Computed example of a mutant assay.
Amino acid sequence: MTSANIIGLPEDGRVVEISGYTLSVEDGMHPLDLEYAAAIAAHWEIERGANPALFNGPVVLQRAINCRDGWISAVGHVSSFATFLWWRQRPMLAGASHVFGYPVIASSDGALIAVRMAAHTANAGQVYFAAGSFDLADIIDGRCDLIGNMHREVSEETGLDLSDAATDGRIFASYRMSKLALLQIFRFELTADEILARIERFIGSGHDEIDGAVAIFDPTPSAHRYNPAMLPILRWYFAAD
């Protein structure tokens, strides 16, 4: 199989600043849904058998990504979580790619705050920044609302309000294996312990998408069970911060 896209970004996850982005969503089915519908359905039955808590909701899956002069352009379609789960086991399959927002939460004492996913989720036990794929709520006038997605996902998973954090507005990109993370740093005037305590109270009030949060003070890859997308970002942040 060949790479889904050749875009003007490093392909090893190295983080680079971008000048802007356009994340379009077109009408019609994603090419994967047209070509592999039977295989996707069969795979979904296997996934549901292993984890009945999974929900097959709408997900924006990109068809193509390009970068020119620092500007990201992506074209996506509304697909399904079942298609995404099938595709992510075949990330180099031509014709698909995945763009997602990655809000980087920083504490006043130098830590990054990530979450550990609960056992009933598709990424059980993995540690990464509170984030999620674009869905119908994120589509405004035919485009994905990156910043709105970041605010929504952080609020739903941790109870934190990114409006309470400072950001310089810069957007960074990390690309590897047909997956593109778009990053923005949000700095809270709270220590790591204070942020973790807020998240623990939120979880304790009945929100169960995550089972905890962690404070990260260095890029040691073995410190937690990191999602692979985290590692180049940690190296970049702690080298530059």
Rank of each mutant, 00 (worst) to 15 (best):
A119F: 08
D135Q: 06
Y102G: 05
A124G: 02
S163W: 07
I203Q: 11
G142Q: 10
G212F: 10
G28I: 04
I233H: 09
L183Y: 02
F238L: 07
R201N: 14
I40D: 03
S24F: 11
A130N: 07
H120E: 10
P103T: 11
G28M: 12
S3N: 11
Y102A: 12
H43G: 13
A122Q: 10
A64W: 08
E47T: 07
H151V: 02
P31Q: 11
A240N: 07
Q62S: 10
A38Q: 10
V115K: 04
T220S: 13
H120N: 05
V78W: 01
A119H: 12
I65F: 09
W71N: 02
D27I: 04
T167C: 10
E209R: 10
P232D: 15
D135L: 02
P221Y: 13
P91F: 14
G148C: 05
A223C: 09
H30A: 11
A181I: 02
F186N: 03
L196R: 13
I195L: 15
I203P: 03
S222L: 13
I216Q: 03
L61C: 13
A94S: 12
F81V: 00
E45V: 05
T121Q: 09
L61W: 09
F100R: 10
P228G: 02
R201V: 03
R225L: 03
I18D: 06
I216A: 02
E189R: 14
A130E: 01
L85I: 02
G20Y: 03
D218K: 04
G159D: 05
A111L: 08
L34C: 09
L146G: 01
Y36S: 02
L9N: 01
H207R: 13
S205I: 00
R14H: 07
D211P: 03
D218G: 13
P221I: 10
F188M: 14
R235K: 06
A130R: 06
Q62V: 02
D145T: 14
E157Q: 14
A4Y: 02
V59K: 07
N123H: 02
I46V: 15
A130W: 06
I233E: 15
A42R: 13
I72M: 09
A38V: 11
L32C: 11
M177V: 05
F186T: 05
S73M: 08
D33Y: 06
F84N: 09
T191V: 03
R198C: 03
Y175H: 15
A229C: 01
A41N: 07
G148S: 08
N51S: 10
G125L: 08
G132K: 07
G132H: 00
H98L: 05
A173M: 05
H207I: 00
Q126V: 04
P10E: 15
S222T: 15
L61M: 15
L54F: 00
P219V: 06
F84S: 07
A111H: 14
D211Q: 04
A192I: 10
G101I: 01
A166K: 11
L160S: 06
A37L: 13
K179P: 00
G13Q: 10
E47L: 15
E189D: 15
L234C: 04
D135M: 05
T22N: 11
G204P: 00
L234Y: 01
G212V: 12
